[in-house]
Design a protein around this nucleic acid. Structure first.
Lengths: 114, 114
DNA sequence: TTAATATTTCGGTATATTGCGAAATACAGG
DNA sequence: CCTGTATTTCGCAATATACCGAAATATTAA
């Protein structure tokens, strides 16, 4: 029961939906996401923790960065179905398209020197 | 964008998920839902307004009652896909099963005389 | 019209969530 | 070990949400 609301609560935030849509393009580190969403690092980190706790993403540490990946191989059927809903053609928005463009453009080696 | 978060916000509440699962059994009026969820009428009414505003349910006035129905024919593909996720076999819980039993048992003519 | 019943709206309180900056942690490279 | 960089955790403020009871609304029945 609580597990089920946890999934929807994780998706019930504009910035977290943007994060998931950006991760459809490629894995990202915290500072790349911070740059695109224009939020504080700490805020992004918390959003990622919520998405990870719900099972939608996982992280892999790579050198000095932590890369966040979409968890397309989750064994939770409901979480998987929800990820598929987000990838549906009708789940669309200008904001997501612009974010996706910026995901292609950002370079962590440039923008991650605070 | 906001429309998309509206859908997930509507589902991000334990009691609203229970309501949607109960409506899979049959249409219900406010006082029947109140009885099963053990909430105030006004609280149930607000939950129903949120679900209706998101497009998951609709209401039909019938005599002195307002019957709430699951909106399975919604033209919003995303809302439809989400309703289907809720009906998935793996979206399951003891709470929902017990609620469904009670839906079969309650009689609005008895319990709706506050 | 009046009374009764079902529902909704309003006002207020308690709790949850989102955001930030500062401090703490992790860790690679010198 | 020490420094610099990326991330996380903590404490706090602002806002949003969930809940209730009381008042307002709608509608049926007398």
């Amino acid at each position: 029961m609580d597990d089920r609301t946890k999934l929807f609560k994780a998706l019930a935030d504009k910035n977290r939906l943007r994060i998931l849509k950006m991760l459809e393009v490629r894995p990202l580190c915290v500072c790349e996401i911070r740059e695109i969403l224009n939020l504080a690092n700490s805020t992004v980190s918390q959003h990622l923790a919520i998405l990870r706790d719900a099972g939608f993403i996982y992280d892999i540490k790579d050198n000095k960065w932590v890369n966040y990946h979409l968890n397309k191989r989750t064994d939770d059927d409901v979480a998987y179905a929800l990820l598929m809903v987000l990838q549906n053609r009708s789940f669309d928005d200008d904001v997501y398209r612009k974010d996706a463009e910026r995901v292609h453009q950002v370079d962590r080696n440039i923008l991650c020197n605070l």
